[in-house]
Design a protein around this nucleic acid. Structure first.
Lengths: 238, 238
DNA sequence: GCATATTTGTCCGTATGTATA
DNA sequence: CTATACATACGGACAAATATG
């Protein structure tokens, strides 16, 4: 508080919604790596070399290893003793498991969550975001909006723990999506389902919305699992 | 496969259910610390001094820090930048959040899980374990059996991810239970509820079991949250 | 199957910054 | 305000395991 301008950048940061909250180097590395994984910039199965990455990121091996441990518990990386860490490679069973948990969480949210302004607005925003992206034929953005939609569904429970669980779950699923980016229009058919679910929620019909979503998720699960299964019998899968 | 006895110790280990799988030092430290926390040997809010613990455990500070990172993501420890790591102290909101997730998972398991031999047997075993412990007036063991019961309920979904989520959730809840060990007979009234749920499951009535369990969990949530709240207004809570 | 190079696992020492008595 | 204790982060070392030719 020595400079008179201190207040200014404090409020600037506060306006961003994020408090100053300096973070550890390991946490910063986690953010970077999580983004890379989220964007599909590192393929599942890739080796995360300590030497190469620590040099590329400009941190010590020790610090990088701490970041690895955090991401291992987030299930984005796997650790093989004396072999190092690798980008997690989802099995078909993993895909089914992730969808099972999604169904449980999202259906519960629609049945038991508060179908009122704070949460319902987030739903509507995500639906509009998806339709706008579809209008621009931006399928990448359609996919992102779709994730926002499902995050918003879980968000109806207004529970930070469940929000985090949901976003972790979606991050894991992205490990499967990127493997199959040949089908970029994968999310497109779900736009109308999202719209329908949102309308039912706005009408206060959580039970009806839950039924639509349940059928929707089951369909998506099989579509993804089948395509994913097909990749495994594909010569390219090392 | 050089020795003719190879098959023997492979099957011996397989009989144990655990493959050889040597683990890293950090993972071993995690196991130790998790046990200590599970047993309530370190009170929530305690400082986990790097210097003291690394010396006590006979590992380097680097290795200990890796173990800390793993436990932070398991939500058993919290990391405060430049202040170190501390045993997580649950808030009353945390307790509500944990019970909300329990209700979602356990109720879903009873409604959608397979009410058949592999899973149902685990349920019955846990119920019997609890009643035997109550017969010996061993309330500690009653509590343990109760956790096994709920783990078995979630286990009806036969999903490893959900099993892990459930056991992590119960580990977190223990952080609250130990704070209130004045009420050692806390779990006792639930023995009959567990029995009732188990009977309904054995009769194939998942819906009925879910309803009993829902009421049960809601009651337990309020009882724990109230007692926990009371502790915060207590002078002892630092 | 073997010898070699590479990489991980783990430890130590230390300089710097931050919090607190 | 100072002093002390502690966490942060780095770099180097070496054994052990693994990958490579």
């Amino acid at each position: 508080m020595t400079t008179p301008l201190a207040e200014d950048w404090i409020s600037d940061l506060a306006a961003d919604g994020a408090l100053p909250s300096p973070v550890s180097t390991a946490e910063r590395i986690v953010d970077i790596l999580r983004t890379w994984l989220s964007d599909g910039r590192i393929a599942p199965g890739s080796r995360m070399s300590e030497e190469a990455l620590s040099r590329a990121l400009g941190v010590s091996r020790n610090t990088l290893r701490e970041a690895f441990r955090l991401l291992v518990r987030e299930r984005l990386l796997v650790h093989e003793l004396n072999r190092g860490v690798f980008v997690r490679r989802l099995t078909v069973d993993d895909v089914h498991s992730l969808y099972r948990l999604r169904r449980i969480l999202e259906v519960s949210a629609l049945r038991d969550g508060l179908l009122l302004p704070p949460g319902v607005n987030r739903l509507r925003t995500a639906v509009d975001e998806g339709q706008a992206a579809a209008g621009r034929q931006d399928w990448q953005a359609v996919g992102t909006a779709n994730q926002h939609f499902h995050q918003a569904v879980a968000g109806l429970l207004e529970d930070p723990r469940i929000n985090e669980l949901m976003s972790q779950l979606l991050a894991e699923l992205r490990l499967a999506f990127h493997v199959m980016h040949p089908l970029e229009d994968f999310h497109e058919p779900y736009l109308t389902d999202n719209q329908r679910v949102c309308q039912l929620v706005e009408a206060g019909d959580g039970q009806g919305a839950a039924e639509v979503l349940l059928a929707y998720l089951t369909r998506a699960e099989h579509q993804l699992a089948d395509a994913y299964q097909a990749l495994k019998t594909d010569p390219r899968s090392t």
